[in-house]
Computed example of a mutant assay.
Amino acid sequence: MSGGFPRRIVCLTEETTETLYLLGEQHRIVGISGYTVRPPEARREKALVSAFLSAKFDKIDELKPDLVLAFSDLQADLTRELIRRGHAVFTFNQRSVEEIFEMISTLARLVQAEARGERLIAELREGLKKVEQAAARLPRRPRVFFEEWADPLISGIRWVEELVVIAGGDPVFPELSGKAAAKDRIVTAEAVAERAPELVLASWCGRKVDVEKIRERPGWATIPAVLNGQIREIKSADILQPGPAALTDGLKQIHNAVVLAAGNPQHGMEA
């Protein structure tokens, strides 16, 4: 590090890469996750050094990072090996909308960009406020089931459930949002049918959503979302990365889907 601030950063997940670019600090990045799609130029400019649960440790060594940024206990094995190899590692664990803002603020401080971090957070908060105001004009709040995995069915990831509420919907499994581990948020197809969602949002973590497969699940034929054709895919890069993308493009897609489910297409947001 120079002057106490990192100059050679490896980002093991996309949201820190995206945030550093938005802060104008992309010159500090030397390596990124192979799953990174935001911003698109990152894949052309930076070395690809990891998946989500695996990494090219020798390649990271060659890059000589002075800081590696990771996410959650899911990357604990990666961070353990990187620490064993002598690398400095900072692991974020943001699970809510407010914690995403905290991640942005912390990262901005790490790279001496506090003022730009504050401006970015203010812009993102203003975007949330506009969507919330648009949602308040809807005549009703449709029941929403967000599906982050198909087999087993997993739902209730906290920041997404919070965004559903901001967008004007009511999550059908609100009790799950406080559970961090995916294994604690597994639901049955029967339980989903009982809660009768009017909108199904699906994002299968890197896999293309099969809407027909969802529609044909046993017992789902009478679910309002299925009856009314309200099954929508949101790409995982837009919603399952707990960072700026989820608060912008992800939220807009949720809101537009909620608007359609509520029967008021004129209140949708521009993409």
Rank of each mutant, 00 (worst) to 15 (best):
G3R: 00
V10C: 12
C11F: 05
T16G: 00
T16D: 01
L23G: 07
G24Y: 09
H27K: 08
V30M: 08
S33K: 05
P40Q: 11
A42M: 13
R44C: 04
R44S: 10
S54R: 07
S54V: 14
F57I: 12
I60G: 02
I60S: 05
L63S: 11
L67Q: 01
L67F: 06
L67D: 03
L67C: 06
D73P: 01
D73F: 02
Q75L: 03
R85L: 03
R85G: 00
H87S: 09
M103P: 02
L110R: 14
E114M: 05
E118L: 08
R119M: 04
L120Y: 09
A122N: 09
E123M: 14
R125W: 00
K130D: 04
V131K: 05
Q133E: 15
A135V: 06
R137I: 08
A150I: 11
W159F: 09
I166P: 02
G169Q: 07
F173P: 03
L176N: 15
S177Q: 13
A182K: 08
V187L: 08
V192Q: 01
D210S: 15
D210C: 06
R215C: 13
R217N: 08
V226L: 09
R232Y: 09
K235N: 11
L240H: 10
Q241Y: 11
P242G: 07
Q253E: 13
I254Y: 10
P265M: 12
M269R: 14
A271T: 03
